[in-house]
Design a protein around this nucleic acid. Structure first.
Length: 814
RNA sequence: GCGGAUGUGGUGGAAUUGGUAGACACGCUAGCCUUAGGAGCUAGUGCCCUCUGGGCGUGAAGGUUCAAGUCCUUUCAUCCGCACCA
């Protein structure tokens, strides 16, 4: 018998598929289009890791499934090449980032091909290719022209290790998400994108897409919408009311209980309002705060600190003078950077008031004791005309009142901040802006795009917050596109999230030199049907690309309001001991080692999918590949034995084969629809076991066997494309199994004619009986009573009740 | 603290609506076979007992029900995201 040798058949079929362009997606094809998108990889020097294998195998299984169902499937792949790791890798290996990228992309491509993924390679690209980033730059300029890209001198998160500024999304617990270094605050002139203008849209859009709640909720949480009011207070010395101290509050109902104000130490009014005799202590407090990193500010969480600035403000509704303090528990970056403190109804204010002996005024009466801080609603007290009102109603009433009186207004506040878009690094898209002394920031004209990255000798990041590009004077010095006078290029580059914010659109039309994508093609392909990716990108890439896409939609550049109709997030593969795989721990499992060991891609594909449900994080088990290899070996033997022995030609009048295969078609089809890959494979294993048993009975015609085996191979083919293709051709099929139509099931054959009924006595299983499906209840109960073991329990007992569940069980209650 | 999830054999995991808990695999045990292999085949494998029978069993404790892994209440543990967000 021909042996199963994955090392031989896998490359063979990969070549055939590639020559036949079997997986090419066809623009404007009449079949229904289906875009199966997986996140494109960052081509690091380490090659593919298990997470890639998991994600792309899931994507490939679904792509193959949809293709066989008759869809015009686009399953694309590209490379997200700009960014710090490549730059660091290049510096370390003393090669240019371009070279490093080319080298790494080649490795990735080879590995992806070895896995047998049904990718349309003709549509592949790399974000660091000038033909691609020309359009990243062009799209950035659309933001700029619409006023959504702007420059500002702001305190940003600075990673001292990577020597670059970071967006808020890139900072995790005060550390840079990539290198885990503590971030510092630095004041730098930065480019920002007004993602906050899209806060409401990003929330609203979630209603129109199919995202699991854990993804949608995480985005909602990140956007952090809260309703309240902005209220203006004035220092009692500010008689002309030149400097309103605006506070944001979600509890306007507690306005009468505001007994002091707290400003963030970095609040711009601090310097203006502070009394001269308090300036020393205020300055030193401000200085002390600035020297703290966010981590240190959080470490002092329990012990709140602050200083009185010597000034008082007027509470506009009570007419009392309330002291103004500064404290670092008030954040400069959220709301207005100032709060009205209501110690009776806010725990933080309460804590602060206790420590510094500040007055407390209870304005809501409820079950909680009067001398305590309470967050619960209740009845208004000490609140003038609002007394006696329910606090929940007072919120809107007080907002109306302050709006009428002109010292405040309703306000919706978001936690989301504008996206810091500048990076002070070499390996990124140059921001296509020219700074003219006369005209300020000017867009590079379209015909001068792309602004190519100059080839440099040295591209190490600098410590001074300037991009290495700033040292290239003949590149920096240019002329203003408006007035032709000497001007300077912007030297910051874009974050690595830029290229990935729109990459999926480029797959629709990857070779277009006139536009980022052709309109009719954008119309044809529409939204991505299913996007698989990692949970870690929920508030980074996924949010960013939704923002870009929504903006493009507003500009008439794309036909759909949302980029991804459905999104799912797969779980992480951990090391065998349940810890995270990491280079430093040395517990990284390398997929190419598994391939090289001779098991082959099919066994690895099955193993990683069979391991656990799609969205579950789970430890890798090294033995699992041996198990799935064994299964494939059994499939191979089953089919090859049939071919080699050409079995009996006996008449077959039973439905036994059909009753094994049709339920399997049903099971695999429905499981793939609901992304339950592991159970689909389990069902295939079960069926192979069943077929071995049926084979021993030897009572089937060749036609029926051949039908059963071919159907089995078709159902396995999305998971194990090589072995199924090989055996399919061994069974004398001419065309590829992967373009054969997905088998249909006969509804009447997916259920057995007889069913096993469990018989319980007092809810305990005592036996089982075989009956015809849908037999009448009386007949089943009568038969159940006769079951010997059951009968012994029923003897000399009175049956109080008999419960019958159709085709499932009988329960006698005594 | 807020938001989301998860707890089932030695292990990974099954159990679409309340209806035979442990499918499928890994591992293990015994036997067979052999070209001694990363084999293959057969049987067994939740725990306990006085073992042709019976009891217990889905993190814990209650509850609803003829019937609960599944529903309700309380609680514990773990993981992920956010976190002094006013």
């Amino acid at each position: 018998m021909k042996r199963y040798n994955p090392k031989e058949i896998e490359p063979k079929w990969q070549n055939v598929w590639s020559k036949q362009k079997l997986y090419a997606a066809i623009d404007f094809d009449k079949r229904t289009k289906y875009i199966m998108l997986t996140e494109f990889p960052y081509p690091s020097g380490d090659g593919l890791h298990m997470g890639h294998i998991r994600e792309y195998t899931y994507g490939d299984v679904l792509a193959r499934f949809r293709r066989m169902q008759g869809h015009n499937v686009l399953y694309p792949m590209g490379y997200d090449a700009f960014g710090l790791p490549t730059e660091n890798y290049a510096i370390k290996n003393k090669i240019s980032p371009q070279e490093a990228t080319d080298k790494n992309v080649a490795t990735f491509q080879k590995q992806l091909e070895e896995m047998g993924y049904s990718i349309d390679w003709n549509r592949s690209f790399c974000t660091s290719d000038p033909r691609y980033y020309l359009w990243t730059q062009w799209l950035f300029l659309q933001f700029f022209k619409a006023g959504l890209a702007y420059q500002a001198e702001i305190a940003i998160n600075w990673c001292p290790h990577c020597k670059t500024g970071l967006s808020n999304e890139e900072v995790i617990n005060g550390r840079h998400e990539r290198c885990d270094t503590l971030v510092e605050k630095r004041l730098l002139k930065q480019w920002l994108l007004r993602i906050t203008d899209y806060a409401e849209r990003l929330l609203e859009g979630l209603k129109d897409v199919d995202y699991p709640s854990r993804i949608a909720d995480q985005q909602k949480n990140w956007i952090g919408r809260s309703e309240g009011a902005n209220i203006n207070f004035y220092s009692i010395d500010d008689v002309k009311k030149n400097h309103p101290i605006t506070v944001f509050t979600t509890r306007p109902d507690t306005l009468f209980g505001a007994t002091f104000l707290v400003l963030a130490p970095e609040h711009p009014l601090v310097e203006i309002i502070t009394k001269d005799d308090h300036k020393d202590v205020v300055h030193s407090y401000v200085k002390q705060t600035q020297s703290k990193t966010d981590i240190e500010r959080q470490a002092t969480e329990r012990e709140k600190t602050g200083v009185f600035i010597g000034a008082y403000a007027l509470n506009p509704v009570t007419g009392t003078n309330i002291p103004i303090w500064i404290a670092d528990y008030v954040l400069g970056g959220y709301g207005t950077g100032a709060i009205m403190a209501v110690p009776a109804h806010d725990e933080r204010d309460w804590e602060f008031a206790q420590k510094y002996h500040l007055p407390v005024m209870r304005v809501i009466k409820n079950d909680d004791p009067d001398e305590m801080c309470t967050l619960k609603p209740g009845t208004m007290i000490n609140s003038g005309d609002f007394n006696g009102m329910k606090s929940t109603e007072a919120t809107t009433a007080i907002i109306s009142f302050i709006e009428k009186e002109g010292f405040g207004s309703k306000k919706i506040q978001y936690k989301l901040r504008d996206w810091i878009f500048s990076r002070q690094h070499y390996w990124g898209e140059p921001i296509p802006i020219i700074h003219c002394p006369e005209h300020g920031a000017v867009a590079v004209p379209d015909d001068q795009l792309p602004v190519e990255l100059p080839v440099l000798e040295r591209y190490e990041p600098t410590d001074n917050g300037e991009s290495p590009l700033s040292a290239i004077t003949d590149w920096v010095n240019t002329t203003c596109p408006v007035c032709n006078s000497p001007a300077k290029r912007e030297t910051d580059t874009m974050p690595n999230w830029a290229g990935s914010s729109w990459y999926y659109l480029r797959y629709y039309d990857p070779h277009n030199n006139e536009a980022f994508a052709d309109k009719p093609k954008l119309e044809y392909w529409g939204a991505v049907d299913l996007y698989l990716g990692g949970m870690e990108h929920t508030t980074l890439h996924l949010l960013y690309s939704r923002f870009w896409h929504q903006f493009f939609y507003d500009q008439g550049l794309v036909p759909t309001p949302e980029p991804f109709a459905a999104r799912r997030g797969q779980g992480i593969i951990l090391a065998a001991d349940g810890s995270k795989m990491s280079k430093s721990k040395g517990n990284v499992v390398n997929p190419s080692d598994i391939l090289d060991s001779g098991y082959g891609a099919d066994a690895l594909r099955l193993a990683i999918i069979f391991l656990a449900p799609y969205d579950q994080t789970t430890p890798w088990s090294p033995e699992s590949v041996a198990g799935t290899h064994r299964f494939l070996q059994r499939v191979w033997t089953l089919v090859r034995e049939y071919i080699d022995t050409k079995p009996s030609t006996k008449e077959d009048d039973s439905d036994e084969l059909k009753q094994v295969i049709h339920p399997l078609i049903f099971k695999v089809t429905t499981d793939l629809e609901r992304l339950s890959f592991n159970t689909a494979i389990a069902a295939c294993m079960q069926t192979v076991n069943d077929l071995y048993h049926l084979k021993a009975k030897d009572g089937f015609t060749a036609t029926n066997w051949e039908w059963a085996l071919k159907t089995l191979l078709q159902l396995i083919s999305p998971f194990a494309p090589h072995i199924s293709e090989e055996l399919w051709h061994d069974l004398n099929e001419e065309h590829s199994i992967h373009v054969s139509p997905w088998p249909d099931y006969d509804k009447t054959l997916i259920v057995k004619k007889t069913v096993t009924i469990a018989v319980q006595v007092n809810g305990k299983l005592r036996g089982s009986i075989e009956i015809e499906r849908d037999a009448p209840e009386e007949e089943v109960i009568a038969k159940a009573k006769e079951q010997p073991k059951v009968a012994s329990y029923l003897k000399e007992q009175i049956i109080r009740k008999s419960v019958y569940v159709n085709n499932r069980l009988v329960n006698f209650v005594l």
